[in-house]
Design a protein around this nucleic acid. Structure first.
Lengths: 220, 220
DNA sequence: ACTCATACCAGACAAATGTCTGCCAAGTCA
DNA sequence: TGACTTGGCAGACATTTGTCTGGTATGAGT
């Protein structure tokens, strides 16, 4: 057969194209030809056509650098759900009594994508290390959907004493509700049935690693 | 002056190019010409050259679709602090633990807030547990700013040979670059000076806990 | 042996795309 | 006003880049 191990070459070409797409632009057929040492254009092109046939690349015929990564459509149909963007308030702290979600401690507004336009969302900055085991670190921002109930196992924001706290909700015996930290150094909080004030469910966790991306509430 | 409001046209051309770049490929000069209704090629090209002169685009002369977004942005930009929202492509998965494929298919577009309009951003889904110690769990989405260099201690996406990985970058002796996992079960990867291909820096980590918030949104 | 499929080579050709050279009109500014 | 800049127009031209038409060699099956 060929001097190159069968299949390997195509795989390498695929990755080559992939990387180039990541870096900014699809390669030219001649670039591939050169990079792989082919002495004929058609060789490189044949591989590309094969990759397109396999569905691993898509191609616009005739266009320069007309190769792209295909769309991976999962779930919902194309036009199905318009994901719209909303700005939701980032609250520095939520205290008991502040259930009105007054904007006193408004830190900023963050952009959130959602299909459920009617949900009431807010964002909260996490304090403390009680959820590090679940990958929620101090300083992280959680996006919360306000809802008075939640399923066992979901991460929720609840009022514990005076302040809001982020924990995993679990149903205990006799209707008791438990707030479980994800950190063995913290205790489980147990509430008699009906005593737990749930602010909402955490639907997203965010961590900004690069300075001041969020900020300035003033503008909105 | 011209029939078009001064300055506006160039701005629109910039956004046009930017959007096209985010979708996969730079537009052709003739595409810009057509999209903006110019009757002469040179008009569109003059704007592009101006944008390059302003440092808002970079250009490879002679290459087809040779326009890119510049990597870095010097000092504070003119427009200051407007936080705008952008849709950035979510590219398949990154093998964060062992070594495997770099990027897969385009999964979706996610909304990102940024003031640095010129940054090139993309998102990647993390796989593997090598960064759990840094609160980055399998399935998390990292927002990455494309840049060829990074500081020691920053979390980066690197592409070495065939594999892409999310790790903490550290500078070793003699110019060596090290990729440190945040999980003692994984090994540190060491690269001779110049051998490490950096795709960018992780500027944000996201975790969606409530179903299909991302997804769809795109039909390009 | 025969066909098929894969991988590659060679060269011609055509379409896509960037570049150049002039020219025009309307503002800006010394 | 006159020099200069900006935004635009027309068309020719050169390069880049994709496409096509043939051909060679090797291995797998029948």
């Amino acid at each position: 057969m060929s001097p190159t191990p069968p299949g390997k070459t195509r795989e390498r070409i695929y990755r080559f194209v992939q990387e180039r797409l990541l870096r900014g632009a699809a390669p030219t057929i001649r670039e591939i030809q050169g990079a792989f040492g082919f002495s004929a254009l058609e060789t490189a092109r044949a591989h590309l056509m094969a990759l397109v046939a396999e569905g691993r690349l898509v191609h616009e015929p005739g266009r320069a650098r007309g190769y792209r990564l295909p769309f991976h459509r999962r779930g919902r149909g194309a036009s199905g759900g318009e994901a719209e963007m909303r700005l939701v308030p980032l609250l520095g702290r939520v205290q008991a009594g502040a259930l009105s979600m007054a904007t006193e401690h408004l830190e900023a507004w963050v952009a959130v994508q959602t299909r459920r336009a009617r949900d009431e969302l807010f964002a909260l900055r996490v304090r403390g290390e009680s959820m590090t085991g679940a990958g929620i670190l101090p300083g992280d921002i959680v996006i919360v959907r306000r809802q008075p109930v939640a399923e066992s196992g979901e991460i929720v924001v609840a009022l514990a004493g005076d302040e809001a706290t982020v924990k995993t909700l679990r149903r205990g015996a006799r209707g008791r509700m438990e707030l479980h930290p994800a950190n063995p150094a913290f205790d489980v909080l147990v509430f008699p049935a009906g005593d737990l004030v749930l602010l909402g469910k955490v639907i997203e966790v965010r961590r900004y690693l690069d300075a001041e991306i969020v900020e300035a509430a003033a503008d909105f």
